[in-house]
Design a protein around this nucleic acid. Structure first.
Lengths: 203, 203
DNA sequence: GAACTTCTGTACTGTTTCGCATAAAATAAC
DNA sequence: GTTATTTTATGCGAAACAGTACAGAAGTTC
């Protein structure tokens, strides 16, 4: 499927790597403030190459958002390994999120989606669509794990898996915002810990 | 203090009203995508008047952020009336937030700070500062109420007021993001309700 | 090897951007 | 009324912007 040799001159760059570089530019500057010159410089691609591969700026941005969403869902599924306790699952979810948001302890970038797509969501319907879908997919994946936890007795019988999942997500949304606002790793880790405690009960 | 008649030609506009109009533009479009033409049209002010009154675009934006922060703190203090139960306090906080975020049921704008300042926080240090201060002031105000609740026995003795306050804020951060992502009022109200339940216990 | 197809680099276009220079208008102080 | 001071309106200007035309380069297919 993907190795059908297309004829004509082949690409001299790796589209996936270029998307990653472009994503970093959007992540730092937001969609509106990122210029095609910025993107061109970061990817080492001329504007015509960018257009040829990804379409216009909005399309390129949507592609980076979609990639981030996918990566996030993969990390989430991994963190929610049902052979572990729910409290460990949640702790892993937050830890994995923070490792992305804090980006190596130094510059805090927060969540790419919440940090940049939120701003564009009003004016750009397709951005709002990706953002909304990302949030609800995230909720849904956690909800599945919550449902298991109710069945297995990890959570009390009357607990509402959907509500619990949304609150677990809420803690992550808060980490996303706060890390971009400059909060320290210690503070964020403390919030994650107390979130786990509140949802799963004290050990 | 404020009525010292300055000489020279007096202003033909109400600066506070103009700030409100400018804030609406930033709220919809974000800082970077809002042009001075947009702002000038919305406020009915020429660009030189805007510059004279508020300085450059970033300064104007910072002023609108600061005003929003103030309004938010006022609304928060009012909602946290300590003669009511903590659970009613929180419910009022979320209700008041949603009334702003949803803006009359139709167009969901979310939170002005979280929806727009987050995007600029990396590149603009002064924006990050206002955002960080807003978040921590909010936490602090709720924490005061939580401390009272522990003293009065509304919360169990061992409860950590700071942690509880940050989690209460987290629910609001999530409402802020989700409303801008297009979630329905019903969904958001359900999340607010289960947040109150989780923090204050079932009735 | 010839023909065809696709990609890359340069350079361009027309628009939009922010911020300001300049001059006229409106008030206060004298 | 005159002068000083501040605000308005028009409109400029230099830079940045997104997107593309075009020509040459680098492959594939036959």
């Amino acid at each position: 499927m993907k190795d059908e040799k297309k004829r004509g001159r082949p690409r001299a760059f790796d589209a996936k790597a270029a998307l990653g570089k472009a994503r970093d530019v959007f992540w730092d500057r937001g969609f509106a403030a990122a210029s095609l010159d910025n993107l061109s410089a970061a990817t080492n691609l001329n504007r015509p190459s960018l257009y040829g591969a990804f379409g216009d700026k909005e399309n390129l941005y949507l592609d980076t958002l979609e990639g981030y969403r996918q990566d996030g869902m993969d990390a989430l599924s991994e963190a929610l390994d049902p052979s572990l306790q729910l409290r460990d699952n949640l702790a892993r979810v937050y830890e994995s999120a923070l490792s992305i948001y804090l980006h190596g302890e130094t510059a805090a970038r927060g969540c790419f989606l919440i940090g940049t797509a939120t701003a564009e969501a009003i004016q750009h319907e397709r951005v709002r669509e990706v953002l909304g879908r990302s949030l609800s997919d995230f909720d849904g994946e956690i909800e599945k794990r919550m449902r298991l936890a109710v069945e297995s007795g990890e959570l009390p019988e009357g607990a509402d898996p959907q509500a619990m999942a949304r609150l677990a997500s809420a803690v992550m949304h808060s980490l996303a915002v706060r890390s971009r606002a400059g909060d320290s790793r210690e503070t964020l880790e403390a919030i994650a810990r107390s979130g786990v405690e509140l949802i799963c009960g004290r050990r």
